[in-house]
Write a protein that binds this DNA or RNA. Structure first.
Lengths: 342, 342
DNA sequence: TTGAAAGCGGTACCAC
DNA sequence: GTGGTACCGCTTTCAA
């Protein structure tokens, strides 16, 4: 069913049908009723391509994912994020377009996306330090919002979690319990969020007058395997740490396993604090009983990004909107006072 | 940059430019070279909307996700699956369109997607038993491939894992080790795969002449929490099982925690076998050291679905292609002989 | 081998 | 209020 057919059926012109359906005020009530009825009866849906071509807006939001997304972004993040953005998009009739690309072709992909007119705006994820994608998008004039931040430039929309502060707080939390040697098991430090987390960890050490020991700081892909091996390594050191900060839930699983294998009890002999933005696999709102986590919702970030992006698309040339969410600290039983030695 | 401009620049007609770019044979080599050079110079990319409108093909594959996707499909699955489908789509110039919808509006969403001409084909996920979406898609004549199967109808393309057989094997594996009471911790049994897994579990019991005890069979959302509570419940029974089959990795994490809290050693006092299709967060190809898992790759399924779908789009009216992948059995250390009693 | 022109299905301007 | 028509950018038929 298309406009022409509908026009034939209703006996009014295509123009009027279009106007009636799009809510233009100058259409008489009688005509509008007639047209609406017919549209409903024949389940008329405007062809998106034609609409896009005529209006110049595609009503699509683009996400560019690296094919090796495993390395660049933990999958659960993506699902949560998209789900959060959903309601905002849906309300305004936007859809999501996902393009997969090789990590080293991202720049081209953005250019092509723009040239092909496939999307009205872009959500950029997993920024690195000084991420080149930002300058490319700015140059293209394609509206975009970054989930996260990229140290280096400043004038763009973003929604981020306060990673630095979260790790300052988490570190202090452990220091307050008497821990002096706190390990850091971090994500890959070419990603901006990991850099900030490390900064927070370091800053808290400085604030509290604690020495930093780089031999108990690790960073890599956030896998269970890495968590396991790192924790094993830590616990076999001559003077092992008494606590650890972990940058992801999945790594913490491995770490917990390693701790258990060494015969240590979590929260008694060894304390851990976990930060993870995507905890959707845990029941909503429940406090996970065995660990302390600084929690925040990626879903919330998704919603905010979507809102800002649609805004930016509709009225460009705005001041950059920059939102920094504070992580939520959920206290469970995986932390305890530092064990007494000597 | 568009065709008209390019035509002006090169001095040949729009038609010829189009033909040259699309590889039509009747274009002279000289003209083609000229056009190609100009296209490259100005980074010409055909406008997808216009192309879609003119050809009637959108070059888009649709995925419809329920907004509450948390409940319907574990997020990691989706990421892995998409990543797998990527290379196939990419090669043929297809993009991915994601529409989010309320679970109870899926039918409408398919209709609208069709009416709006947004997609050329659809990948359907997480089928239930007798899933109504299948008949809707068939009625619409929109090409589709199901990831999974839906007992009830038979004439459609699908790619599935042999869930039944995987659970037969997993059960036998434990029985061979001497286990007689094996718990089943399954996903929600309105989903087709969970039904099949249960069937496999039951069938193996029958084959081996073992009694089935429905009080050690559980099914629900596949969360860590559910795994934890269920395992806790199991271990406090008067005559607890000595082993369990777990339908997802994330549930197993909770179960492992419960086992640990009871002071039992995994693989010694209690054995577990895990089945999970999406294990991308574990290092590629490595054997997870603490459990036995029947592994299979969702990525592979994604690739296959994509291939079949593109095929179906290009030459409709084919025999349904139905692929059933065998799960891979990876043996780790979380299983051991049944402990001796009496 | 090339070009003119008619559509694809809408939107929006202009005239009535 | 309503209708005619040009146009969005591309493909495709037909004629030259």
């Amino acid at each position: 069913m298309n406009l022409k057919e509908l026009s034939k059926i209703t006996g009014v012109s295509q123009t009027t049908v279009s106007r009636a359906l799009n809510g233009y005020p100058e259409v008489s009530e009688k005509t509008r009723a007639l047209v609406n009825a017919a549209a409903k009866q024949y389940n008329y849906q405007p062809n998106t391509k034609a609409q896009a071509l005529a209006t110049g807006k595609s009503k699509m939001i683009g996400y560019v994912l690296p094919k090796a997304s495993q390395n660049e972004m933990p999958n659960p993040i993506f699902g949560d994020f998209i789900a959060g953005a959903a309601q905002t998009y849906g309300k305004q009739g936007y859809d999501t377009n996902i393009t997969l690309t090789d990590s080293d072709t991202q720049a081209e992909t953005y250019r092509d996306l723009y040239a092909k007119g496939s999307v009205d705006g872009i959500i950029m994820q997993a920024p690195k330090e000084n991420d080149e994608r930002i300058s490319i998008l700015k140059k293209l004039g394609l509206p975009f919002v970054v989930h996260g931040r990229s140290t280096g430039s400043n004038d763009y929309h973003f929604v981020d979690v306060n990673n630095t502060h979260a790790f300052v707080r988490a570190t202090n939390f452990l220091v307050d319990l008497g821990h002096q040697r706190i390990a850091l098991i971090n994500g890959n430090e070419n990603l901006d969020f990991a850099i900030r987390r490390k900064h927070g960890y370091l800053q808290a050490h400085e604030d509290r007058g604690l020495n930093v020991d780089t031999t108990i700081m690790f960073s890599s892909e956030m896998t269970e395997e890495f968590g396991y091996h790192t924790m094993t390594k830590l616990l076999t050191m001559k003077s092992p740490p008494t606590a650890a900060l972990l940058s992801s839930y999945i790594m913490a699983i491995g770490a917990r396993r390693a701790i258990g294998e060494k015969g240590l009890r979590i929260g008694k002999d060894f304390s851990i604090v976990i930060h993870d933005d995507a905890l959707s696999y845990l029941p909503n709102g429940s406090t996970h009983p065995i660990f302390t986590a600084t929690r925040s919702s990626v879903g919330e970030a998704g919603r905010l990004c979507a809102e800002i992006l649609l805004d930016a698309i509709q009225k460009p040339e705005q001041q950059p909107r920059q939102i920094i969410l504070e992580a939520e600290l959920v206290v469970g039983s995986s932390t305890g006072p530092a064990p007494q030695h000597d």
